[in-house]
Every structure is written in C-alpha cells, then in structure tokens.
Amino acid sequence: MSSAVSTRSAAAVRTRTPATRSRRRPRHAVAHVVLGVGGFLMAFPFLWQIIMSLSTNSQVRSVVPTFWPGTLQWHNYVDVFAQLPFLPQLGVSVTITVIRTVAQIVLCTLAGYAFARMRFRGRNLLLGLVLSILLVPSQVYLLSQYQIVQSLGWLNTIPGIVAPGLFSAFGTFLMRTAFMNLPNELEEAARIDGANPWQIFTRVMMPLVRSNISVLAITTVLFSWNELLWPLVVTTYANLQPLAAGLATLSGSVTVDYPIIMAASLMATAPVLIAFILLQRRVIDGIASSGLK
C-alpha cells in the first residue's frame, strides 16, 4: 500500500502547479462522492452476501428480507470444513491456478507479441482463428476436450484439469493490444544493437507490458479459481477436485443450506481477493518503473 501511495503522491507533487492547486480540493470531492457511492452500490450485493453467510437459513429464506441476523452464525464457516476435504481441494485449486497462470502468461505473451509486432505470412488469418474460438458457446468444447484428455489418460489428474485452460484467446488478444501500444523506437534500437527477436522480446518488450501481464494474471486466476463445469466432469474423486467444484457439491438437491453456501463461496473467494489486492499494486506501479518515461 505505502509504495503505491508514495508513487502517486510523487506524481501529484510533480504535476502540482499554483494554477491548479485551488481547484484540486473540489475536484477530489466529486471523485470521492462518485467513487464512494458507486463503490458502495457495487459492493452492496457482496456485503449482503457476507451478512447472509452469518445468518440462519430461515433468515435467508425469509420473505421479508432480514438485513441483520442478530446472533452471528460463525459456525457456518466451520461447517464448511466439516463437509469438504477443504485443504486437499485448496491445494488442487492453488496448483491448477499457478500452472495455468504461468502457462497463459508465457503462451499469450509470446503469441501476443508475435501477432502485434512481427511480420509473417498468414498473421491476420492465424489471429482470426485464435479469436474465433471465443465466438461459440463454450460448452461446445466439452465432449471433445473430455475425449482428448481421456485418450491421454489424464482423467482424474492435474494435467487433465488444467490442459484446455492453458490456452487463451482472450489473453492473446489482451497481450497483443498491450504490445501494439508500445513505441517502435526501443525495439529498433535493440535490433540495431544486434539483439535477436528473443532478446528483444525478453529484455526490452516484456518489461514494458508488466501491468498488462498483471491484468492477464488476475483474469486467469479468477477463471481458474472459479471454473466449475470442467473440473467436475473430468474428476470423480472429491480429493482431486478444486475448491469451487467441491463447494458446488454442497448444495443438496432438496435442502439447500444457503448460509453455508454463502460462507463457502466467500471462503473460496477470499484468496482471489487477496491476490487481487496484491496484484493491483503491480497494475498501478507497473508502468511507473518500466522506463516508459
């Protein structure tokens, strides 16, 4: 937190001039009102979910909404542990998320760079093909992917769970956009210095898109962490399922204990929230130290 703040205030000091100082206070007031009210509206369903996770099922199901449950039912969180192999599933979630995030960063950054800044035959066609996979309902892929994973003998394995999610058209598009926004000069200079494309990519260009890589990381973490259908289909052992899938099994078909589900989903969300809070500093700071001055 502190470094982010100091970077920003340094920027503020730099741009502060007598002419604008008098206007700054009211403008920030507007920003605070807009962001405060907007932020509350955005967060409201989430906050209500927190309250529900501490209520009884009857309170959640009450026709007239219960905004405050009175006695807070903290045991709802403990109950989640009782019903799930929470730690093994957490382990699976972390493992698959790390693998996919690293893989997407590597693959999407490489491909995104090539699509943005290299010249080769069929570039637009290949880019179009990659993007085209976003254009059909995602469930179209389920059975084919299942049978590929099955033929590789990867059912009920980590490789099976992660495989399709290693490749992202969205991430490629994101990184292509990022690389397209960079100036040519640095690249040209490096090329004149005799650097090969790999060296240009790793030493010159990669560092310039760090904030976009952070965005890619955030979205991949979220996708991987919350993904439901695929892990449920390729695994048949509770111990091998990621947390989101395990939590989904908690909703009985008849008796749904909503507070438990709310508590469970909040517990599953918490690591992602923490990851975001950590990563957002990189998004913010990324460029400041990237040499793009």
């Binding site: 741009t15 962001l35 955005m42 989430f46 989904a248």
Partner: peptide, 25 residues
Amino acid sequence: TPGLRFASFYRVLFFLPYIAMPTAV
C-alpha cells in the same frame, strides 16, 4: 486522479462483483 486518497480501496470495491461467485450472488 493523481493524489487521490483511498484509490486502492475504491478499486477493490469496484472489482468485487467480478470476483464474486455468480451462483451465490
């Protein structure tokens, strides 16, 4: 906005819906 206080906090607020699990929400 340069020098805006609580920016990180606001950012988290606005990002919460994207993190939240759809079925629960």
